[in-house]
Amino acid sequence: MTELSVSAVTIERGERPLFAPLTFSADAGALVRVTGENGAGKTTLLRALAGLTSVASGSIQWLNAPSAHYNGAKRVFIGHSNAMNESLSPYENLVFDSGVAGNSVTRVEVRAALARTGVAALIDRRVGSLSQGQKKRVALARLFLPGNETAAWLLDEPFVALDVATQALLASHIEAALAEGRIVVLTSHQRVDIRAANAIEVTLSAIKAPERLVANEAQA
């Protein structure tokens, strides 16, 4: 069954299309690697897949439901920003994250999720006092919260700031998620080895701004 289908999608930023119309589909257990130069729209595509950004034309469907329907296929989006309040602890942040999604979690469950990325010991530290790598690991622990067991993973540069051992750990978590039949969409400039039976490469080609537009901006 096709879980994710993207057909002729274009996304605009500031009334300018980011990339040429994009079409691909992914079945359960597929690894989708999104590549493209800086500014090609990788992050924007992931936000659109998460339902945070609307498309200018074309459609994104998860299990035949439009991407903006959060009640449909579950997705966990982990972006550049770690989406955590720095004044709160990892525990308080993760309880909020799953609470807002409608799940109540216990401290034991939060600790178990943090243990999957090796940061269970930081459960009550203030997020603001953690290092970049530790923050990223806490953010990635969201993937393992109850309620996200079947969710697709949308990971924007997840390996940034992680040490080599944790990169390998995350790669093995991704492999396990693929084996469970989840879709994992990934943007990464680092070439981390991930074994995937079904891997799709999506390359975004940036559309250069038309010269007239550039001239107008120069005047203004």
Partner: peptide, 17 residues
């Protein structure tokens, strides 16, 4: 504003509620 800066506004926006 604060949530938009640290990214946690995403949690509110993607909530099914």
């Amino acid at each position: 504003d604060e949530d938009a800066k640290d990214g946690s506004l995403e949690h509110l926006l993607t909530s099914p509620e």
